[in-house]
Write a protein that binds this DNA or RNA. Structure first.
Lengths: 349, 349
DNA sequence: TGACATATTTGGAACGTTCCAATTTATTGC
DNA sequence: GCAATAAATTGGAACGTTCCAAATATGTCA
């Protein structure tokens, strides 16, 4: 049992060199003789040395901490879990580690978590903000010169980089596809009305309705919780309308699955009797029965890109806000009736 | 823009006290006069001071880093995401932060990640080990006196604490329930044969078959990938047997969902024509159609308990391995046919 | 008022690393 | 063989905190 941890001077002593030399080999400097480097490395292994990053970036004092903070609003939602996995991939292969925390949509929690991360000297932050996050909440970060990338949801007025998917275009494409296979009454189901994401998606819906000359009826827009349960609820409401829709674009895949559940509860088979399209393309979308037609946003890819953007800013040293809108694509599967080759009930469901 | 970060001496100077005093208020010591404390706090706020934890635990040198490492094998699987959320809850309210990383079942990645965490001076580790993790992999950690709790999957021979669910008992209860509602030929579907978890669950299956005097047929045991796709595959194989089973216990919920998909593809309705029970009770189990009968293990609760166990060990200062087996309970819903009140096809599906 | 106890405050010395300037050692050109 | 250069090594000061022992202020009692 060694008393206390093994330090750089311990190895220096054991290898018969100075601590400076050891430090040099630690950083892979080319200044050090090959033989010396080898000897030091051997001794390090023998003594079981572990590098003390805390001490190191105390000295270098700058933002060289090699820690990236990642804060998501709901890790339980597989969309965000995938996002985090994507971030982790690139962050890790760049030699950083990720500090991942979950806020459960709580602003207070979000502030706590971010404060804690600052204390640990994160060199950058990727944030999928809790609902109602404001520019002011991010102010201290940017004032301190810490690069921040907000993902998924934008925060208005914050001078930080962002990466969001093209919500408007995605829903537009979904509606357009439904129109192209003959639907005239298309509902927009799910989502909370107080988010920017909702607004953008709804905007895409309205634009497509107009562009395709479809029946416009505000009662076909039915918000709900963005969850499976919310979806079931929304479709129930939709089917209670006198002139029923024959298809729906949903706020996200979770809602779409709920809609499928609700349809079955009404003896309607999704894809055959009623067309449904989701948004996100979560992993289960492919394997569900029927396979879900959806807008693919590839959360993992989004996480990767967010991380790349952040790393770029960290390396550049200066924070220059950049807004990426990540393009999306419609993935046609069975739930809209077009994928299976079967004809579908076009008129009244 | 302040040059460099603001330090404890800066506030000391500004507040007209010594740095020692500032340090004292930082730690909430009762030694410091109330008036002084107030003044210091004001100045701290004014100057936008942020505590440098790195410097702090450099001095305290011990394992007071306030960082908990959490390593999971598949964050994409909502079971593990929930686990992480549970850990985060208690860890955070204890004033720690969580370092979460994903290994994607890669042993190499796992070693890298753990090494990196050690460099950052984690004061404890919660690990849901990648497949084929061995006791030797954890050796350095325990040698360094870092408390470790392995969760979900045990690792044989490692002298660390563990928390796993009662796999044997869970499957046993599932089979028993199926038997009690009349099934005689029950399959065991999904899971990889090389894991301890699989062995335990299979063991429970065999024990229940024997205990309930059910038909024993090794061909009813069909391993597969522990995923939705794997489940679909497994049920296809099961339905190809000449004397078909009428029910199945599945390795986990993902497999169970795949089994439902596969049944529908064969014009069989899960819950009516064939009984299926899952394992894990993931969130979707409740809202799926039909709602899944499953063994509830409450991953979030498991995460919480794992974290509590770890914190206890950290505070105790000494590492004393403790093995918790978390009890499970059968949640009867619709997919086994008993929940909906409908009679179900008991004999040949 | 002096002596003592108690409450508050305080300089420095650590912690384990990196960096700088300076030193030692090896290599070259002539 | 000797200066000049290049290569390799090195001691000490810093980074921002905590801790210790010691100092100072304040209060109490006779």
């Amino acid at each position: 049992m060694t008393k206390g941890r093994v330090t750089v001077v311990d190895i220096a002593k054991a290898a018969g060199v100075s601590k400076s030399t050891v430090s040099l080999v630690l950083q892979g400097s080319s200044l050090v003789n090959e033989a010396t480097r080898a000897k030091v490395n051997v001794v390090m292994r023998e003594l079981g040395y572990v590098y003390n990053r805390g001490a190191a970036n105390l000295r270098q004092s700058g933002s060289k901490s090699k820690i990236i903070g990642v804060v998501v609003n709901d890790l339980t939602n597989s969309f965000f879990a995938e996002l985090a996995v994507g971030v982790d991939m690139v962050v890790q292969s760049a030699g950083f580690v990720q500090f991942l925390s979950n806020t459960s949509e709580s602003l207070d929690r979000q502030q706590e978590v971010i404060a804690s991360m600052r204390e640990h000297g994160i060199s950058g932050l990727i944030l999928s903000p809790a609902r109602a996050t404001e520019a002011a909440d991010l102010k201290p970060l940017v004032a301190a010169g810490i690069p921040v990338v907000v993902a998924v949801r934008n925060v208005q007025g914050a001078k930080v980089s962002s990466i969001v998917s093209d919500n408007r275009e995605g829903i537009f494409a979904g509606v357009q596809h439904l129109a192209s296979i003959g639907h005239r009454r298309i509902a927009f189901l799910g989502g909370f009305g107080d988010t920017a994401v909702f607004d953008e998606r709804l905007d895409g819906y309205r634009a497509a309705i107009a562009a395709c000359h479809l029946e416009h009826d505000e009662s076909l827009i039915i918000p709900s919780a963005p969850s499976r349960a919310g979806g079931a609820q929304a479709i129930a409401r939709a089917l209670a309308i006198e002139v029923k829709p024959t298809a729906a674009v949903c706020f996200n895949d979770a809602v779409a699955f709920g809609v499928c559940d609700g349809l079955r509860a009404n003896r309607l088979e999704p894809g055959r009797d009623f067309a449904v399209v989701g948004f996100d393309d979560v992993i289960e979308a492919k394997t569900a029965v029927p396979a879900l037609t959806t807008i693919s946003v590839d959360p993992q890819g989004m996480g990767r890109r967010a991380a790349q953007l952040l790393l770029k800013q960290i390396n550049a040293g200066k924070v220059e806000a950049e807004a990426i809108v990540s393009s999306v694509r419609l993935v046609v599967r069975e739930s809209c009736g077009a994928g299976s080759g079967d004809a579908i009930g076009r008129r009244q469901a």
